[in-house]
Amino acid sequence: MIRHLAPAPAIATAIALTLSWAALPARADQIWVSNELDDTLSVIDVATLEVIATYPTGQRPRGIIFNSDYTRLYICASDSNAVQVMDPATGQILHDLPSGADPEQFVLSPDDRMLWIANEDDALTTVVDTETRGVVAQIAVGIEPEGMGMSPDGRLQVTTSETTNMAHWIDTETHQIVANSLVDARPRHVEFTPDGTEMWVSSEIGGTVTVFDVASRAELAKIAFSLPGIRPERLQPVGMKFSPDASKIFVALGPSDHVAVIDTASREVIDYILVGRRVWHMALSPDGTQMFTTNGVSGDVTIFDVATHRTIRTVKVGRYPWGAAARPAPAD
């Protein structure tokens, strides 16, 4: 399987650079979005809520993640079978990492060193050293791994597998699975609470979010959703994101075109926010006040206020926006 990784890099990058330099006078916070069916990233200026740059990537970009000082952006280029490393200052792809086949989502270890990558087609979690650019380990997990979470202390990685319906708890030191927890059908996303005590898993087809106690791995709660006028099968939890103070968690409900708001302590659904069509994932603005949702089918990003849940604007991006990541205003 030999595929080119970045389409016509010289020309495409030149165009992107022109675009970005022409449009980047203000140094504001940014939200980066991967456009799954356009093989591009869109950069949204948080101050103006406009797309200020579009950069070409490998094929079918999905998960994206910045390192802790925002000098590198990692991109799961699923159909290029690579994780690409981009310099966010220039939009240039620096090199690829050996990701294993069909990388979809990943997490970066707190020390910025190890990328934990879900290989959807191979039922593997691949651990890649971003410095040596080598594969450190491959761990056999269930069919179609996707959701990737890491405990804040970096000791525990959780991979969820969509067709095996499990959360696999992996010791990051030994690279061994230490436990498997069954969840409802088609788990898609994992979030740890910032204090590391709870792990939340969304189940797309099961229509639920399961909360686990990290210490005992016991199931604490299962949260379901209901919205008048929308058939229950369409309430499909996918991406999740905590508010900055972790008092609330926002859950993207896919084809219901809504984001649910759950009170973290009571685990009650307190609100539903109407966004664009088939909402996948979210990113929080660096100041913590605005949430950006990727709406796959409508090809746009909805911005809502984290405190009031009011929608602010919808911004057109590329085809099938999927992943999202925030980057604070570059300092210089």
């Binding site: 294993g100 086949a101 191979d122 039922a123 593997l124 594969v135 380990a137 491959q138 761990i139 056999a140 997990v141 061994q176 699975i177 498997n180």
Partner: peptide
């Protein structure tokens, strides 16, 4: 990649007991 995955799979089935 395929060889690696086979090894890893063996490990997993041992683990699951």
């Amino acid at each position: 990649m395929r060889i690696l995955s086979a090894i890893a799979l063996g490990a997993a089935s041992l683990l699951s007991g």
